[in-house]
Design a protein around this nucleic acid. Structure first.
Lengths: 208, 208
DNA sequence: ATAGAAATACCTCTTTTGGGTGATTGACCT
DNA sequence: AGGTCAATCACCCAAAAGAGGTATTTCTAT
């Protein structure tokens, strides 16, 4: 079960990286890499018709992003496994990748030997990811457990109704300074720096 | 076509209601009701294997809700029709029911004769619902008609990411004045007068 | 052909906001 | 007994936003 040849496709816009990866993987026993695409569009057009087990997907593609491409392909071919590759890990793209169906999330500086191990892990139903990435995922989920205090949630809800500092303050009998402090804390907790994004994020996470 | 026997299953936690409904339906010519479940879990385990045409689904079930149960079963058996039953009608549950694939939405005080009529309506491709329910649906959908132009939607989405006038402007190659004008028009159309409320409303109405 | 959107651009003025930094109280945890 | 955190209040300052205009162009639908 663990030693069948795994068929891999690569989607990566950088020519050097793409070719290097292809050579490394295809040259390794138990791995085959006959297909590589420089963009999401060509991958979407072809991959569904190929006998592929695992796709290595760059996130930062020109045109359709790796996330969009993964969303599309995972829907077409649910049995396909996707490992996202990226230069740096940011919370949003990790989270989005997981949402659209990626199974693994690796940084591009992962060394070749490890990469092969991780591909096999995914093939066998695992979800390889670096410890930094894992940490961020934990953090993301923690955010889903409402990080806001009751008071903060109350204030945020009022902001979402279009109320200003002062209006909120008079409404709940606080000094406008206090309201401001609450808002600043809300921004910090949600990792945003203005009202618009705070409300968007809070709504998306069903916090309000 | 309209007089075949319709095979019905009931999912309802209240023993009295479940047994009464079963008796009424199974005792009526052209209707058969041999299966009744007290909760979503048991329904999910069995209904897919039964020869059933229409499911009467209580919304307020203990454990898995009627909506969750419907989502699961509709996915497994797309040909199955679901009529949601509820004591009172609230916008959210109506809307969610429709989203997960329910065909009808009736209040529990619907009288037995009407209920049978409605079951046959669903079986024949209709969507029975009380006039209050219909009104609410109309209202929900009416809001869905996006009043915003493409450009305005684009701008609003960018605002929801926390971008300022200027950032939006440089991003889509417009003068900040133009962006400001768009935003003013957005506020007017959504009947709000600031960013926070605009994003909240737009999100609630799935405009962004 | 032309009325009505939509998209574009500009101006002035006042209010609001967000960042930085700080303090105090009380609760809860260990 | 010390640490953390929510909640409260306070000040300064620069940037941003919102309200009020006006006005041209470019579609598009009738």
């Amino acid at each position: 079960m663990t030693n069948e040849t795994i068929h891999i496709a690569i989607v990566e816009d950088d020519n050097d990286i793409r070719q290097t990866l292809t050579l490394i993987i295809d040259g390794s026993k138990g791995f085959s890499c006959k297909y590589a695409f420089p963009d999401g569009e060509s991958a979407m057009a072809s991959i569904a018709n190929l006998l592929i087990d695992v796709v290595l997907m760059d996130i930062d593609l020109p045109g359709k992003s790796g996330i969009e491409t993964t969303r599309y392909l995972k829907q077409k071919c649910p049995q396909l496994d996707f490992i996202m590759l990226t230069v740096q890990s940011d919370d949003d793209s990790i989270f989005e990748s997981l949402c659209v169906g990626a199974s693994g999330y690796l940084l591009k500086d992962t060394n070749p030997a490890d990469l092969l191990v991780h591909i096999r892990e995914v093939y066998n139903g695992g979800s390889p990811m670096s410890s930094q990435v894992a940490r961020r995922i934990i953090n993301s989920f923690r955010i889903i457990e409402n990080p806001l205090s009751d008071r903060e949630t109350e204030v945020l809800k009022m902001l979402s109704k279009g109320m200003s500092y002062k209006e909120v303050a008079t409404d709940i009998f606080l000094s406008p300074h206090t309201v401001k402090t609450h808002i600043k804390n809300i921004y910090a907790k949600l990792h945003v720096n203005n009202r618009a994004e705070a409300i968007y994020k809070a709504f998306k996470q069903k916090l309000i």
